[in-house]
């Protein structure tokens, strides 16, 4: 970009969500991304059938965080056999809420002129980490103390970048904000905050082990069922 090393938010590579075998020739691959404060489903539709496909539409089932398409699916021209088209579907989080198992499961229905197809995907929780998720230091300390110990979950992250600055920068690009940093007995401790789209705060302590690619992540949250999904997201961000 010419502006130096500007880190972007982590986006997983696309994977196949609907195989052509199950989609009567329609193959859909996709991933989720957060860009400029908005969530997108980035999709590739491929026609592996022998007939033209048209009249595409998409719908989500109710889900844990109210994810819903913010606009109709824009595939405006018919898709010829062996043709692919990329589409970026903007999402919002004001849809109907229903707790899913796993929490980040999303059931999707796609229709075209041939049939309606259903598939399930899981989304990485960091697409729900909002840009104003940096908690005030005083609030962080009070909240950390206030959340009971039984709501603390501990995880091990392997393949963590070796120095606290790169860890902090990488995470901040995906809206995991470092509130404070301390070094105790040679260990770097990062205190971090995350806010989800539904207003849930997650407090983190990331302890980097000197000379080791492994680090310890402790998460405190009033809704502890989100912790393991936040861990998976943080681990994916740090590995990539």
């Amino acid at each position: 970009t010419g502006t130096g090393a500007v880190l972007g938010a982590y986006v997983a590579p696309k994977s196949v969500w609907l195989h052509a075998m199950k989609g009567k020739g329609l193959e859909i691959s996709g991933t989720f991304a957060r860009r400029s404060g908005a969530v997108f489903m980035d999709l590739v539709f491929t026609n592996r059938a022998l007939q033209v496909m048209s009249d595409f539409a998409i719908q989500f089932n109710r889900n844990s965080f109210g994810l819903a398409p913010a606009a109709p699916l824009q595939i405006l021209t018919p898709l010829a056999p062996n043709q692919s088209t990329e589409v970026s579907l903007p999402l919002n989080t004001v849809g109907s809420v229903m707790k899913m198992d796993p929490l980040n499961n999303l059931q999707v229905a796609v229709k075209n002129n041939i049939d309606v197809f259903y598939f399930s995907v899981v989304y990485p929780l960091h697409i729900l980490f909002v840009e104003d998720g940096k908690m005030e230091r005083q609030m962080f300390l009070a909240t950390w103390k206030d959340i009971p110990n039984e709501n603390e979950a501990q995880f091990q992250i392997r393949e963590c970048p070796p120095n606290p600055d790169s860890v902090s920068n990488k995470l901040q690009a995906s809206n995991v904000f470092t509130v404070a940093r301390r070094t105790v007995d040679g260990q770097d401790m990062l205190y971090q905050s995350i806010k989800l789209t539904n207003g849930i705060w997650v407090l983190a302590e990331l302890r980097l082990q000197p000379g080791s690619p492994s680090s310890a992540l402790s998460l405190k949250c009033r809704a502890p069922e989100v912790s393991s999904f936040v861990f998976q997201a943080v681990e994916a961000i740090l590995k990539n």
Partner: peptide, 20 residues
């Protein structure tokens, strides 16, 4: 001097977590 005591509070938190 804007020391609000928070720097010290974070140091105590980190200490307590490393050497409980």
């Amino acid at each position: 001097e804007l020391d609000d005591g928070l720097d010290e509070a974070f140091s105590r938190l980190a200490e307590s977590r490393t050497n409980p």
